[in-house]
């Protein structure tokens, strides 16, 4: 085993994580994509996606989780998703009725998932015990 894989929790936790993390991700995506039809909205979807990554991080350690998801990707996704949010807001400002449009609903959902990714990013930064410039 490589030194990276020795970190984290016991073998049982790692195995269970390997089995379940895909389903958690899938469920998160499902909640996000059907958010506009269900009570509570798609916001929870982003959080569930974020939880999947936190799950990986708890079981395997920070390095593995960060290898899956680079900080550059995260930073760009924060920026892009926030800009999509802003686009939706501006579309609302300009008086177009956006909530009837077929295209904007998926865009909303994507933005919401992006916001969830933002949550992961902050969570990763929080739990990182190393210094800030590790990225």
């Amino acid at each position: 085993m490589s030194p990276i894989q020795e970190k984290g929790m016991s073998l049982i936790v790692k195995t269970v994580t390997k089995l379940t993390v895909g389903f958690i991700l899938l469920y998160g995506v499902y909640v996000a994509l059907t958010g506009h039809l269900s009570p509570g909205g798609g916001f929870a979807g982003g959080v569930i996606v974020a939880l999947a990554f936190i799950h990986v991080m708890l079981a395997f350690g920070k390095e593995v989780a960060l290898r899956r998801l680079r900080s550059q990707t995260l930073r760009v996704s924060i920026g892009v998703s926030a800009l999509i949010f802003l686009y939706i807001v501006m579309a609302g400002f300009s008086g177009r009725s956006i909530f009837n449009c077929e295209i904007t609903i998926p865009i909303c959902e994507m933005a919401i998932v992006g916001f969830g990714l933002f949550a992961i990013f902050t969570a990763l930064v929080l739990l990182s015990k190393t210094d800030k410039d590790a990225e």
Binding site: T122, A123, V125, L126, L127, K129
Partner: peptide, 13 residues
């Protein structure tokens, strides 16, 4: 809450 937790982790360090 995220902000406060982040700051308190850094404070612990």
């Amino acid at each position: 809450t995220l902000l406060l937790v982040a700051v308190s982790i850094k404070i612990y360090e």
